[in-house]
Design a protein around this nucleic acid. Structure first.
Lengths: 321, 321
DNA sequence: TTGTATGCGTTATCAG
DNA sequence: CTGATAACGCATACAA
C-alpha cells in the first residue's frame, strides 16, 4: 500500500504538500496539486485510517446505546443514526443493554477511554450524576428532555403527546382510560405519567392504579394486556399503548377472542410504525428516523453549549378509537 | 492521558517491558511485572486504541451489509453479530443497501481500503466475480450456500426448508401451492425456487406462474398478497410466505375482509419470529441470532480455507395450515 | 507557497 | 530476561 511519502516522491513534492491536497487545504500551486493528484490516481492510493485517527486523536466512531437492537422503535432510531453517520464518515458501535446498567456503563467507559468520539444513549438507565461524570470525557446525546442540563438531546414532548391522546379520548366520551408502557422509571415515562396525572386531575376522574400496565414492549405483550383488562371488574374503556407493536398485539389478540376494538376497548398506539397503518391503529406519530439523524448531528456538534431539539408529534386518526 | 512511556518511567522499566506485561507476554521478571501493574492502577492508564490499530495494521472494525436495518429478519441477524462482536472487542459498521449494488460496493471498497477488517454480507447483490475480486483484500462472510467457493458462510438449507414446508402442505391435501418472496434473484431465493420446481415435478402439479408473488417484505405487503390471491380465478389453496412479518400481514388482512385462514388459504411463514408465535402462524424456524454469531466468528477466523456452516431448520406446526 | 521536523502511542525487531 | 529503536502513516507547527 502506497502512503503519502511515496506519493510525495512520485510527485516530486513534500509530504506536507501531499497532505495539503489530500485535505483540500489552500496554498498549493495548481501545478503541484495536479502532480499530486495524478500520483494519487496512478498509485491507487488509499489513506490509512488508523494513522489518521492516531494523528488526529479521534476515532470517528460513535457509540449507540439501545436496550434492544431488534425492537422496531430502536431499529428505526438506529437506522436514522446509521444513515447520517455513513454520510459523515462515521461508524457505529452498537451497545445493547437489555436495560442493564452495567452494559450502559461499558459504553460510557469506552467514551472515557476515547474508544469512541461520542455516545448516543437512546434510552438512559444510569442516574444523572453518572452521566455528568462521563460528560467530561466526550459528548453524550440523549433522547429525552434535558433542558436545564448541559447535555444535548433530541426528544419528543411526551407530556404533550400523552395529553393530546388523552384529550382525544375524553372528547370521544371515554372516562376510564389506562395506559401501558415498558418501564415507568425512565425520564420519558415520567413525563407521560405526569400528563396522565394532570389529565385525571383536570377532569376529576378516579385513579385506578391497575389501569397502568408495565413491561409492555413487544407484539406478544398485547395478549398479556388483554388478559389483564379482561380480568378487571371495572376495566378501562380506552388505553394508550406506548408502542404500535403492542397495540397491534392487542388488536390481534382481541380478534382471537371476540373482544371488540374499539367498542370494548379503544386504543391509541405510538410511533406510527407501518404495522399501525396496516392494522388501522389510531396512533401518535413519532418521527424516529428523523430523531436518529438529528441525534447524530448533535453528537458531531463541537460546540460547548448543549442543544435541545424538540420534535413535534401528531395524532393520526384511524379505526381503533 | 498517560501512555506506556509514562508507565515505563513510573515503573522504572522500558516501554518494551510495559508493552509485554500489557499483552501478557512471557519473559518479564515477576518483580518488574508488579511494578508495572501498580503503575497502571495508579495512573488509571487506558490504552490508546488508535495507536494499537496503527501499529497492528488492524481496525477491529467489522462491516455488516444488510438491505434493511429495520427489518426484523436482519435486525435479528445484526443482534447476533453485535453480541459476539462486543465480546471480541470488535465494533460494527452498518451498511444499509436497500438492495442497491453501489451501496454494497461502498462496503467492499472499505474492505479494500482496510477501513474494516472483514465484511459480513447478509444478503448479497453483487455478482460473484466482484466478490471474489475483493476477497483478496480481506475476509468476506456470506449468508448463503457458498460450498465450492473459497468464501466462508453460515447458511440455511433453504432448499430443504422449502421442500419440508411443501411436503407438509401436500400431506395436508394441498395441490395448488404458491409462495411469496422478496426478490427471486438472490442465491437463497434460487434454492427455494428450485425446491418448488422439483416439488411440482415430483407430484406432477400444474405450474402457475402467478402463484409466485415477489416484492413481499413487510407486514403491510400481506395485504397486497391477499389482493392478488383474491383476484385469481384459480387461486392457490396454500402459500409459503418467506417472512413471518408478511404472513402476519396476510392473516391480519384476511381477518379484515372475512377471508378465512387456513380454510380459504393455508399459510406457512418463515423465521419463527415472535409475531408468528403470537398469531399462531405455522412457520419454518430459522435461528437468526445464532446465524449472526456464527457469521461473526467466521469473519474472525484467520485461516485461509473457507468454512461452511449449515444450520438446520424446523417446521413449527401451528394454526395457519 | 513550500518543506523540515516532530508528535501521536503502540508493537516488533534485534542486540545485549 | 531486558531495553533501544525503528516502524506504522499521517497531520501540523514552525521555519523559510
Amino acid at each position: 500500500m502506497t502512503n503519502i511519502r511515496d506519493l510525495a516522491k512520485m510527485a516530486g513534492v513534500s509530504v506536507t504538500t501531499v497532505s495539503r491536497v489530500l485535505n483540500n487545504h489552500p496554498y498549493v500551486r495548481e501545478e503541484k496539486r495536479n502532480k499530486v493528484l495524478s500520483a494519487i490516481k496512478e498509485s491507487n492510493y488509499q489513506p490509512n485510517i488508523n494513522a489518521i485517527h492516531l494523528s488526529m486523536g479521534k476515532t470517528f466512531l460513535i457509540g449507540v446505546v439501545v436496550p434492544f437492537i431488534d425492537h422496531p422503535y430502536f431499529s428505526l432510531l438506529i437506522k436514522g443514526i446509521a444513515i447520517e453517520a455513513l454520510e459523515n464518515n462515521y461508524k457505529l458501535v452498537l451497545f445493547q443493554t437489555n436495560y442493564e446498567v452495567v452494559k450502559e456503563l461499558e459504553a460510557l467507559q469506552m467514551l472515557k477511554q476515547k474508544q469512541i468520539d461520542a455516545l448516543i444513549i437512546c434510552s438512559r438507565i444510569s442516574e444523572w450524576p453518572i452521566i455528568e461524570e462521563y460528560l467530561t470525557y466526550g459528548r453524550i446525546v440523549l433522547c429525552e428532555d434535558t433542558r436545564g442540563r448541559n447535555v444535548s438531546s433530541t426528544f419528543v414532548d411526551h407530556y404533550q403527546g400523552f395529553l393530546t391522546a388523552l384529550e382525544y379520548l375524553y372528547e370521544k366520551g371515554h372516562r376510564n382510560i389506562g395506559y401501558c408502557i415498558y418501564r415507568n422509571s425512565g425520564a420519558n415515562s415520567k413525563n407521560r405519567a405526569l400528563a396522565y396525572e394532570h389529565f385525571i386531575e383536570k377532569y376529576q376522574l378516579p385513579y385506578h392504579p391497575e389501569y397502568i400496565i408495565t413491561q409492555c414492549l413487544q407484539f406478544e405483550d398485547g395478549e398479556k394486556v388483554l388478559d389483564r383488562v379482561q380480568q378487571m371488574s371495572n376495566p378501562p374503556s380506552a388505553m394508550l399503548v406506548t408502542s404500535d407493536e403492542v397495540a397491534a398485539g392487542i388488536v390481534t389478540s382481541a380478534q382471537n377472542r371476540n373482544f371488540s376494538i374499539p367498542s370494548d376497548l379503544a386504543i391509541i398506539g405510538f410511533n406510527n410504525q407501518p404495522i399501525a397503518h396496516m392494522m388501522q391503529i389510531t396512533t401518535i406519530e413519532i418521527p424516529l428516523m428523523e430523531i436518529g439523524r438529528k441525534q447524530f448531528l448533535q453528537a458531531m456538534n463541537e460546540s460547548e453549549i448543549a442543544v435541545y431539539q424538540e420534535v413535534p408529534v401528531t395524532l393520526i386518526e384511524r379505526e381503533t378509537v
